[in-house]
Design a protein around this nucleic acid. Sequence first.
RNA 1: UCAAAGGUU
Length: 247
Amino acid sequence: VITYNSLIDGYCRRGDIRSACLLMNKIRGTDPSKYKPDLVTFNVLFNGFCKMKMRTEVFVYMGLMWKCFLPNVVTCSTWIDMFCKLGDLDMAFRVFNDMRKDGLLPNLVVFTCLIDGYCKAGNLEVAFKLYEDMRQASLSPNVVTYATLIDGLCKRGKVEKAGCLFSRMLEDGVEPNSVAYTSMIDGYFKKGNVDDAMNYLSKMRDQGINLDVAAYGVIIAGLCNNGRLRLSTEIIEDMVRSGLNPD
RNA sequence: UCAAAGGUU
């Protein structure tokens, strides 16, 4: 089953949902006590559907799953993430409430999915309320949670608040990564504040965090959009020197 | 063996 699950996961990641489903149906069809899909098989398929925004297929397989398994935390976070990304926050919240009713404890990932959903919908109030809720549930926000909130603030133009949250993250003992820095840098560039963007870039480098392709993309575009073409060509040279190719 | 965050509009 583990081998099958990995195969199905591989198909899903390639975007080949068709092959994934065919394989799933095949192991469901080999009735005997030979192979049976387990909950992970369903989770993997759900994730594939979610990435492709195949909402109706999810409902079909939900029905199949219920016949043999109860959803676990991974199942629920996959559903919640999908509904959030489809913009159906009410449904996402419903899954969140239902899982608690069924005695499942939402974990860090579940909260972070919801927080991201509300951030992207522009509802920072609820996002921060969830951030408080998770702390009250004795869950410690990690760098993904913080990066999500920081990006939400930056995208709404609240770069100063994002900077405060960035500091709070450090006080909280959470190590920033390239994603958290990239959101801050992007936020400042979009405000036309090249100096503070470059400040965060220096901090990032001081901490020995390697710039990845997304980080370079933000910096290069930011410098270009702010008329600093000379500097941006230097950054491009850096990127090439570090062995990354502009994509 | 499975779930969450950043750049391209």
